[in-house]
Design a binder for these strands. Structure first.
Length: 490
RNA sequence: GGGCCGGUAGCUCAGUGGUAGAGCACCUGACUUUUAAUCAGAGGGUCGAGGGUUCGAUCCCCUCCCGGCUCACCA
């Protein structure tokens, strides 16, 4: 390790401590109380003159004035002041504190509890010990660590010095826990399915490709869990869900990370209307877990997850905002012509389905600020969803939106193996037409459907994006502990 | 990938075609109730990398690397 001047100074102190027979990294702490325990019972412990041993990282400056010193330590549960006097501690350890210990070192202190004359709860230390010497210096005292890249690369440091970062990840844990409670009590079994898949599927995306050496087999990192979870519905499980990472080999921006956390669930004998109610229940519970109320504020916009969400058919939504009826413009040629004739500014797409998706993304999606379901997607956009009984060109599918972001995707699952086979074949034609995200044929999945899958409702929700909305973080990197970053040159 | 902005001390940032600056941190000294402790003093730089122009480049030009925001694509 190459050390800069400040690191070298601290390393020299570390070496001197070793020379004095003080381990810079002792095996364990003799802590008797967490800081929050001390603070909660402070007056009782103080009145009883009970000695306590607390431990934590020295945060802020050590304030040393001749024969007395102050420092604050933080242990993850709270912050507490140490009152350190040469008279109580003795010359050796007082000078050791002054000369060999630094801000950010992790220490333990034994003493009795008293308030200082300004009333601050403090440990009046009579025994001090080092638990872990710190070589890296802390960031600047006031501006702190603000560089976004450094915050994400050194998340450990970000967590030390920026308390609100810890709050985001506590909120994340609380939201996922609430999600699990809703699903567990709703009759869903939590399962795990393969990350390494010989055929990728369940979504429209480019995969990461990898290789199994011993088997000589090409494998893909999953882009969705959908097809495996539906095999479990075929297997007779009445409801399943999985919360886990998906991997998509796409661009990186403020709402996309190459690996992201998805919850997918499937319920036998249900349909997409069941899933809409489930989404409402999930978001309400997650919002409550994060914010204590069923409303959330995202970038000064108040979102209400309390009531049922509006349900807006995609065909009507596109017609309202573009004037085009995709129901009657069912060929790629006539759709392109209508887009040109109406002066709509959208990228030209190779397939009808992609073009409809483009129209929606450009003209409708940004307007969906409040929680909204867009329902009934064209069949060509939805190769795994069941057709509407009264209009076979559309499917029983919805996507859940808020603040212009897609939070979830659900449908009444296609269980007709012959229709499914045809959809896969159509996707193959789209792939040939230039859609490199088109779905792969999955013969084993068709075989499962040939054993019969009951009518089923299925749902996928992007956990990271939900957290962005609920915790008011406009960048996905702020809700992922270690977001993907470009590799730094050596 | 395109556009805009940026990369200078450990951190946060100024700045200039002529020997590199501040605050905080760090180091030395003083100080027995501090809360951004205070006071006095000292040290610390491949100015992102490479090339070019120039007597001289951290500054001007070119290329590249990295980052932020943004547009495009994807959840």
């Amino acid at each position: 390790m190459e050390l800069n001047d400040l690191q070298a100074q601290r390393a020299a102190k570390l070496a001197r401590l070793r020379t004095d027979g003080i381990s810079p990294f002792p095996t364990r702490s003799a802590r008797t109380h967490s800081i929050t325990e001390v603070l909660t019972h402070f007056d009782d412990l103080a009145a009883a003159a009970t000695p306590v041993t607390v431990a934590g990282r020295i945060v802020g400056a050590r304030r040393i004035m001749g024969k007395i010193a102050f420092a604050h330590i933080e242990d993850g549960t709270g912050t507490l002041q140490l009152w350190i006097s040469r008279a109580d501690l003795g010359d050796t350890w007082f000078e050791r504190f002054r000369d060999e210990l630094d801000s950010f070192d992790i220490v333990e202190a034994t003493g009795t509890l008293r308030r200082t004359k300004v009333g601050e709860p403090s440990v009046f230390v009579h025994t001090l010990g080092l638990l872990a010497k710190t070589v890296n210096p802390p960031p600047e005292k006031w501006a702190g660590l603000t560089d976004i890249e450094e915050r994400h690369r050194q998340r450990y440091l970000d967590l030390i010095v920026n308390p609100e970062v810890r709050a985001v990840f506590q909120a994340r844990a609380a939201a996922i826990s609430a999600m699990r409670r809703v699903l567990d009590t709703g009759g869903f079994l939590e399962v795990e399915t393969p990350v390494l898949q010989p055929i990728y599927g369940g979504a429209a995306a480019r995969p990461f490709t990898t290789h199994h050496n011993a088997l000589g087999q090409q494998l893909y990192l999953r882009i969705a869990t959908e097809l495996y979870l539906k095999r479990l519905i075929v297997g007779g499980l009445p409801g399943v869900y999985e919360i886990g990472k998906n991997f998509r080999n796409e661009g990186v921006d403020r709402s996309h990370n190459p690996e992201f956390t998805m919850m997918e669930c499937y319920q036998a004998y249900a349909d997409y209307t069941t899933m809409m109610r489930l989404v409402e229940d999930l978001l309400r519970a997650m919002c409550l877990a994060v914010n204590g109320v069923t409303t959330a504020t995202f970038q000064a916009q108040t979102l209400d997850f309390g009531p049922a969400w509006p349900r807006l058919p995609m065909r009507a939504a596109i017609a309202e905002h573009t004037g085009l009826d995709i129901g009657s413009l069912s060929e790629i040629g006539t759709l392109h012509a209508a887009i040109a004739a109406n002066g709509l500014k959208v990228e030209r797409k190779p397939t009808w389905a992609k073009q409809v998706d483009e129209l929606f993304s450009a003209y409708v999606q940004p307007l969906l600020v409040q929680p909204t379901f867009i329902i009934d997607y064209p069949v060509a956009l939805s190769p795994l969803a069941k057709r509407k009984p009264d209009d076979p060109t559309f499917t029983e599918r919805f996507e859940a939106f808020a603040v212009g972001m897609e939070l979830g995707n659900a449908f009444t699952e296609l269980n007709d193996p012959f229709d499914q086979e045809q959809r896969f074949l159509d996707q193959g034609r789209d792939f040939a037409a230039g859609d490199d995200e088109a779905h792969q044929m999955d013969v084993d999945y068709l075989n499962a459907l040939l054993y019969g899958m009951p009518p089923t409702g299925g749902l996928g929700m992007g956990i990271d994006r939900i957290l962005m909305v609920l915790a008011d973080r406009p960048n996905i990197r702020e809700v992922i502990l270690f977001p993907h970053l470009r590799q730094r040159e050596a």
